[in-house]
Design a protein around this nucleic acid. Structure first.
Lengths: 346, 346
DNA sequence: CTGTTAGCGCCTTCAT
DNA sequence: ATGAAGGCGCTAACAG
């Protein structure tokens, strides 16, 4: 089966290749008769267009390059899904590059130098493929300024920060503020918090929100109720135990990710502390499994899908020359109420 | 900044465009002197190659189209990661299409007609982009024969079955056989099983494995120890309760996915049955959260990464004309031992 | 309404 | 060791 191009169909339909092109793209009026004839031949010869050739001419590929730091990290697939929804709607295609950071550099991804080569290669490949724009998806909200140079190609970052280009992020500070407010309205005053590593932006932002809420609601500020974790389950377990062993333990606990929250649950159980009866617990991330734990935990949802979708919208605006309106309002987190919080009665 | 192509660099370096092409591709000997001169100009002008043009000529894009039924379903990202590892190694690119099945047709994905249009569009787009081959990643191991027609383009399916083309799958039957054998060797004889929906291929295969093991190890076959679930947590919970309410409850339980196993844990706890002391539990899938549950559950790992990697290897073999060796040995599942199984002592 | 034609950026055969 | 030149499949002026 030889390749059939518009030339072949032109010959068989007794028209010029131009006409074929025009009926294919509806880019000029063609006599219905001719048009039909051409269409019939296209059908018969099972013509398949070649977008490569088309792109070469038109200088537009209608494809967006997506660089994901690691597609196996929980936040990434949903962000890509949001990108896809936009892409589907506007008939764009996605070229995906997976940096595979986790498997390649482990948890050392804060050290930008360690994977700059990978990132630079990804960008070169994408540029060579003439993508119309690039979206960079981080696996941890940190500053990634200077990692790559996309040249003239528009780029939008998400789930990470950058000083020079647009980055789409959710509002961490607001989110933890909301969580504390929620707990406060349930009657809790002595609210403990387990943060992530404090060299991370979201940890600081979330702590800011916590502190702001504590101030606004005039809650007691007790440093021993503040624990710094490392995002891992074991640290959630250990720190929750410490909290529970306090002479005057907190009645509620905000844990800055669901994995540590799973550790909190384990700690509580091992000490005979019931959740939520004796301790209210709020997690962060709304990981799928937070609904599988026992009790099902109340947690802060991340607007991942929306971040992907917004990134695309912003990128397309930039590509369209509308830089002004590219910056979207930041996607918001909303609390998912489940079973791990009870009102404080006493 | 105008586009600089090999023409521009040829001019500035006082050579022909042919020479530039040759130094770029190392496809012919060039005098070191000339070569260096050209390279210098390339550097100066920040030349960026255009793979679109290259592909048009060479008829090879070095890119593989990946169609994922839904990237947000747990098995997909890891499979893609495997694909990426291979792609990185052999300098291939990936264009990703996400059918978004879950969000678009819900759990109705067994009804192939419901999303044929999406799938066909995906294939057309990929073919238009001149991909060298296609990998189709299912979200549930079922037969998708006839869903799409990739024409002459090589295709490999994974995490689903097809009658006409190659599909890479793990060995379900072996996996559940192994799980039962493991339990048997721990001293268990009365082993219950909660299957998934029985209209699904893996459920049947896994049941076969169970039954084969029961036969091989001469275990009692008691129909009341067999429960048919629907993959959801609630069904695991309900059926485990039924099992535990039996006059003579099983001492061990194989649950065919981790989500239902989370339900089993909940059921056990609500009835005061301890896992693993009173009931040993083995899950399936090795979902990340299976390590977060309490107790951490022993579960059967799926070789997802390997499936992705193998799919690529097979596809590339087919592309290379080596159809014979395309079919890989099937990837194996291995049991991850954690805390939910105890030896039976009595 | 339709045809002719000049490229898009690069590879590659054929000369030199 | 290097150049000249003809496409790859398609689009879009420019002419009828």
């Amino acid at each position: 089966m030889d390749k059939v191009g518009i030339k072949e169909i032109a010959a068989k339909a007794n028209v010029s290749i131009a006409t074929v092109s025009y009926v294919l793209n509806g880019t000029r009026n063609v006599r219905p008769q001719t048009k039909e004839r051409v269409l019939k031949v296209i059908e018969e010869l099972k013509y398949k267009p070649n977008n490569i050739a088309k792109s070469l001419k038109s200088k537009k590929t209608n494809t967006i390059g997506v660089i994901a730091e690691d597609i196996t990290v929980f936040n990434v697939p949903e962000i890509i899904d949001g990108i896809n929804e936009y892409a589907d709607r506007y008939d764009l295609h996605i070229v995906l590059t997976n940096l595979r950071l986790h498997k390649r550099v482990g948890h050392n991804y804060s050290n930008i130098g360690a994977f700059r080569k990978y990132a630079e290669n990804a960008v070169s490949d994408l540029l060579a493929k003439q993508v119309d724009g690039i979206i960079y998806i981080g696996i941890h909200p940190r500053d990634v300024t200077g990692l790559i140079d996309p040249g003239d190609t528009p780029i939008v970052y998400t789930y990470c920060y950058t000083k020079n280009e647009l980055s789409i992020q959710y509002n961490d500070e607001q989110a933890s503020y909301d969580a504390i407010e929620y707990l406060y309205k349930k009657g809790h005053h002595r609210i403990a918090v387990i943060t992530g590593l404090m060299d991370s932006i979201p940890s600081r932002l979330r702590f800011n929100g916590y502190f702001k809420a504590v101030t606004d609601f005039e809650l007691p500020f007790e440093p021993q109720l503040i624990k710094v974790g490392n995002w891992g389950l074991e640290s959630g377990l250990k720190l929750t135990k410490e909290l529970l062993e306090l002479a005057d333990p907190p009645t509620a606990l905000l844990v800055m990710n669901d994995v540590m929250a799973a550790g909190s649950l384990r700690a509580a159980r091992s000490m005979g502390v019931r959740v939520p009866e004796d301790l209210s617990l709020v997690g962060f991330d709304n990981r799928e499994f937070s609904d599988y734990l026992n009790p099902r935990i109340t947690t802060m949802n991340l607007p991942l899908h929306e971040m992907g979708y917004s990134s695309m919208r912003s990128l397309l605006r930039i590509i369209g020359g509308d830089e002004e309106h590219a910056a979207e309002q930041v996607p918001l987190c909303v609390l998912i109420e489940r079973e791990s919080v009870a009102p404080l009665v006493d």
